[in-house]
Amino acid sequence: MVSSELGNQMQKTAENSTRHVNEFEEAQLTPIPSDLVKPMRVKEAPIQMECRLEKIIPLGTDHLVIGQMIRYHIQDQYYLGNYKVNLEKLSALGRYAGNYSVSTEFFTLPK
């Protein structure tokens, strides 16, 4: 998950670049080792997920990447306990049709 505070860095890492570009350096983020997978995590991210690749599906000029989450890391100040995240404090970014929005209002729907 990306908090609104990391929006500009997220955008920088989403740019098309060659495989030789270090996205951590370009976005001025700090890499830290993962526990179970080879790719590094982003230290500054309030929530980090380690995933194993399941499948890559070509979709036109893009790809849909499907992974299995195998480890979840969350900074203490965002954890409410009982597997709940403080979404208001996280201020997560969402992407809608190429535009971004900060998630600030949450509600439940009847089951």
Score class of each variant (00 low, 15 high):
1 M>L: 11
1 M>F: 10
3 S>E: 03
7 G>N: 05
7 G>Y: 00
7 G>L: 06
8 N>F: 06
9 Q>H: 10
10 M>R: 05
11 Q>A: 13
11 Q>F: 15
11 Q>D: 10
12 K>V: 12
13 T>I: 09
14 A>N: 11
14 A>F: 07
14 A>I: 05
14 A>C: 12
14 A>L: 12
15 E>W: 06
16 N>Y: 13
16 N>K: 14
16 N>I: 10
16 N>R: 13
17 S>V: 14
18 T>Y: 15
19 R>F: 10
25 E>Y: 15
25 E>Q: 14
25 E>S: 14
26 E>L: 15
27 A>K: 02
28 Q>Y: 10
29 L>G: 03
30 T>H: 10
30 T>A: 03
30 T>P: 01
31 P>G: 06
32 I>Y: 03
32 I>K: 06
32 I>R: 04
33 P>T: 05
33 P>R: 13
35 D>T: 15
35 D>M: 14
35 D>E: 15
36 L>C: 08
37 V>S: 01
37 V>H: 02
41 R>S: 02
44 E>Y: 08
44 E>Q: 09
45 A>Q: 02
45 A>D: 04
46 P>F: 12
47 I>E: 01
49 M>L: 15
52 R>E: 14
53 L>D: 01
54 E>P: 00
54 E>G: 02
54 E>C: 04
55 K>R: 14
55 K>C: 01
55 K>I: 01
57 I>M: 07
58 P>F: 05
58 P>E: 05
58 P>W: 05
59 L>M: 10
59 L>G: 00
61 T>V: 05
65 V>R: 07
67 G>C: 03
67 G>L: 02
68 Q>G: 03
68 Q>L: 13
70 I>S: 06
70 I>V: 15
72 Y>S: 09
72 Y>C: 13
74 I>E: 04
75 Q>M: 11
76 D>I: 06
76 D>F: 09
77 Q>C: 09
77 Q>P: 01
80 L>I: 06
80 L>G: 08
81 G>R: 14
82 N>A: 11
85 V>C: 03
86 N>V: 00
86 N>L: 03
86 N>W: 12
87 L>Y: 11
88 E>Y: 15
89 K>F: 01
92 A>K: 05
93 L>Y: 14
94 G>V: 07
94 G>C: 09
95 R>K: 12
96 Y>V: 13
96 Y>Q: 11
97 A>L: 15
98 G>V: 05
98 G>T: 05
98 G>E: 03
98 G>M: 11
100 Y>M: 05
100 Y>T: 02
100 Y>Q: 04
101 S>H: 13
101 S>P: 01
102 V>T: 12
102 V>Y: 12
105 E>F: 11
107 F>V: 09
107 F>W: 10
108 T>L: 12
109 L>Y: 09
109 L>N: 11
110 P>C: 06
110 P>V: 05
110 P>A: 08
